[in-house]
Design a protein around this nucleic acid. Structure first.
Length: 185
DNA sequence: TCGCCGATGTTCT
DNA sequence: GAACATCGGCGAT
């Protein structure tokens, strides 16, 4: 497996969110196929970047190909890939993976045996992969232990409204691998 | 299997 | 003081 180059991420969030479906996310010895994503950008009232750059969203306004990690609901972290032209505040939320390697480690971290419960949600996969707030701003290209490997086949992708937001609910900016049993519910 | 609800702390008003 | 890009447990079906 080889890492996608920085240029792969230098596209708008709605396009990258679809291009990431079927790619593999690798964190050390742990990996999974991306099966569900959501797009966010600065013109979007549901996005953390909507109100402009703050301490929390600083990395969203930097160059593409870096990790934006945020803490929410007092106990969960979620993982995004910053994308688009620098300064646009665009990112793609990774919502679900099909677990591929490191299954035993994932089960221990999640305290959960069933494959479908390991990475079927944005905070679940962060826990399963061992991603923490220390990974905020971490580079995803030109590395060998934190990267995204391109897909080899063209997936069938479906789309619909994003989950868990109260604004801009009409946008169909959530994308998932058709018929995958590993998407969030 | 589905839907409601509480946990828990950071961010922004 | 309210909202929040969530999750797991619980009770009802």
């Amino acid at each position: 497996m080889h890492a996608a180059p920085q240029t792969f991420f230098a596209k708008d969030a709605v396009t990258l969110a679809q291009d990431l479906i079927g790619c593999t996310l690798i964190v050390g010895e742990i990996s999974g196929i991306i099966v569900e994503t959501e797009a966010y950008n600065q013109d979007d009232a549901a996005s953390h970047s909507y109100k402009g750059e703050t301490a929390r969203t600083k990395v969203m306004f930097g160059p593409a190909g870096y990790a934006y990690i945020y803490f929410t609901y007092g106990m969960h972290y979620c993982f995004n890939v910053v994308c688009g032209p620098e300064g646009r505040g665009e990112a793609v939320l990774i919502r679900a993976l099909e677990p591929k390697t490191g299954l035993d480690t994932m089960r221990q971290r999640r305290n959960q045996q069933h494959l479908r419960q390991l990475c079927s949600g944005p905070a679940k996969l962060v826990q399963a992969l061992g991603i923490t707030k220390a990974d905020y701003g971490r580079q995803l290209f030109d590395t060998d232990d934190f990267y995204i490997a391109p897909r080899t086949d063209e997936p069938t992708i479906e789309s619909g409204p994003r989950i868990g937001i109260s604004r801009e609910t009409h946008k169909a900016w959530r994308f998932w691998l058709s018929a995958s049993e590993f998407v969030s519910k």
